[in-house]
Design a binder for these strands. Sequence first.
DNA 1: TTAGGGTTAG
Length: 808
Amino acid sequence: MDEKRTLAEIKSAKLEAKDAERVAMQTFRDKSALLEVYTKASIKLYKQLVQMKAKQHQVNSAKIIERDLNVLEANTDDLAQRVFNAVPSPYRRRKDFLWNQLIRAYAWEGPFKKAIDLYHEMVDFGVKPTNYTYPVVLKACAALRDTETGVKIHGDLERLGLGADVFVCTALVDFYVKCGCLGQAWEVFDGMPHRDIVAWNAMIAGCAAHGLFGDVLGLVLEMQEEGVSPNSSTLVTILPVIGEANEVTLGKAVHGLCLRKGVYGDVVVGTALLDMYGRCGLLNYARRIFDGMSLKNEVTWSAMVGACITCDSMEDGLQLFRQMRAENSGDSPSPVALAAVIRGFAKLIDVEAAKQLHGYTLKLGSILDLMVGNTLLSLYAKCGIINDALRFFEEMNFKDSVSYSALISGCVQNGMAEEALKLFRKMWLFGVEPESATIMGLFPACSYLAALRPGRCAHGFSIRRGFTEDVSVSNALVDMYAKCGKIDVARIVFNKMHKRDVVSWNAMIIGYGIHGLGLEAISLFQNMLVVGQKPDDVTFISLLSACSHAGLIAEGMQWFHSMGKQFSIKPRIDHYLCIVDLLSRGGSLEDAYKIIREMPLEPDIRIWNALLSACRIYKKVELVEEISNKIQSLGPEGTGNLVLLSNIYSTAGRWDDAADVRVMQKGLGFKKIPGSSWIEVDRVIHAFLGGDQSHPESARIHAKLLELQAEMKKMGYSAEANFVYQDVEEEEKELILLYHSEKLAVAFGLLNIHGKSPILVTKNLRVCGDCHTALKIITIITERRITLRDTVRFHHFYNGKCSCGDFW
DNA sequence: TTAGGGTTAG
């Protein structure tokens, strides 16, 4: 574009605008329209000039022109308003087009509020709006999500019988779509006697925004049946939906349609096409389109880099990014492409490379984009360096709900659920609006902590915001209630869901499993098959572990055998783990060992661990030596298991062997995870480590436990010293057991939760055998219900019994 | 037309 010519054009447009103004002022006639056209034209030309300067990297001149532009834009409103104000009242009353013209000027690019205010003023003034007025006002309502005015207009239209106009109806559809009221949009759309391409596109865009793949497809077919052919705008709307739904065949069909319609050369269509192929995992197709495009813009390049990353082709992505940089050396790199590359490094867990890239772009002088910052934040969290993520978060100048969401879920993934809850509160305090993804990160934090109260609050909040409409949010909700001990509430939420996916069913089956309700889990699984929901690999892990916790050995074996035969799901190592666990905890150690020997996969440490734990419970020391050899042949991977091995030697009184194992363990740099338990009292979560004396109420807690111990002894309890694996005096063993983290938390609960309220304690490891026995007796002494949730299930203690029937 | 945060199991 020629700069001089542009400047000349602006000049003449300005002059003409001035003329128009003069003429308009004199005649009060429809010159106002002319005036608007001229002013808009010069604004458009100015905008082109700014872009030109920016492209040439003349930042300062671009800024100066931009300032002029702002003045001009501000004046447009003034200008139009001045003309309007000059019109005498009686004339104004008669001429609706004057109002329409001004409303249209405001509704075009804002300020939208003025358009709506003017519309109200017009009605109050006694001027009747026309079919020309409504679409324009509705556009402003849509922009501001002003449902009140929009809905009122809709009502007026129905009363006046003006609702048949294509433009008005299309504007109504668009208004409802933009306000998220899809139902109302459908209603208007279905009632239209004629629909043009714009109406179809509006409705399609609405369904696309809600991810309704089936509806989008149906509409596209229907419009063609009615003789309306999709245009490039339609195609560009449906392509991302097709990509999201992974519908390759359909995508290829649309590709063909693009070729037939000759819109293939369009940059926007081309970009949407390559993006679709990228999402479907067909990188070669995407690349072929990219290479064939004669005109590419920044979006095209960024989309291509993103496609490479999505398809795990890091090398190609990086190469394209470098090429992009080389071709636009003066510009800052596109934040979208940069974020894509960082995402690629996150996938590879290559923090160093990502940091280098980050530093490099900072050096280039690009302002740190919020999106890029958020990508980095999530990179740190995903790579497990959560402290770096927290530090980076503090250093960020701008934070939005995505930043908070990324950090909240990052904390949970790194076992810092309490920090996640704190962050959520902080976010609330700073007035940052949580989104559905934030809640999806928050629920797992509540699940982890068994923190029902914040979970319930977040549930209420989600209902008010309509988040629970989202299947994934409801899935997380089901999981939260189940893990907080409210299995019946979980089921109610599950039943109320109007749409369920495989994750919903899995979450519910898992819920039954951790509550030891194996039969319910099986029954739900059968229900799932009846309604036609296909199970996946996770379903079987959930089902098998549910059988395992409930001691349903025959049922578990039956489903294990059918998963390959009936459902064509190849058992993974995790499935074998469940089945070995099921058999060995049920006492069939030989059968379990047989499965291990015959399985087509190499048994890993967890498999041996399951068998080894059972060896301890059933005191089968003869198998231990054999397993121990197998474990040692695993090399460094076997380290974690040495804890158990040394424990078994200790139990058998073979202290020297136990010590040898521990020395070996130390050499391999293994750290035992300390057992910790926590309990919520008055909205505060109190955490305890084994033998912990750091709690302010420590003295009272210890005294309470000693008091309980004395009573327990009267009832025939003796500490099961073989759960202590250190070679120490019996008396000391007793104390080590007495101050186990779960007992500390229970004692704290008894001291601080008054009346007969039940006590809920959560533990980060599996419950210790001695604690299990002790808690049963404590429920008799205190007449309290105590629930202990460990890593695999709930134990409900009451009246000397446990819901697990001592099978755990 | 591209883009950051997200649910179940182990």
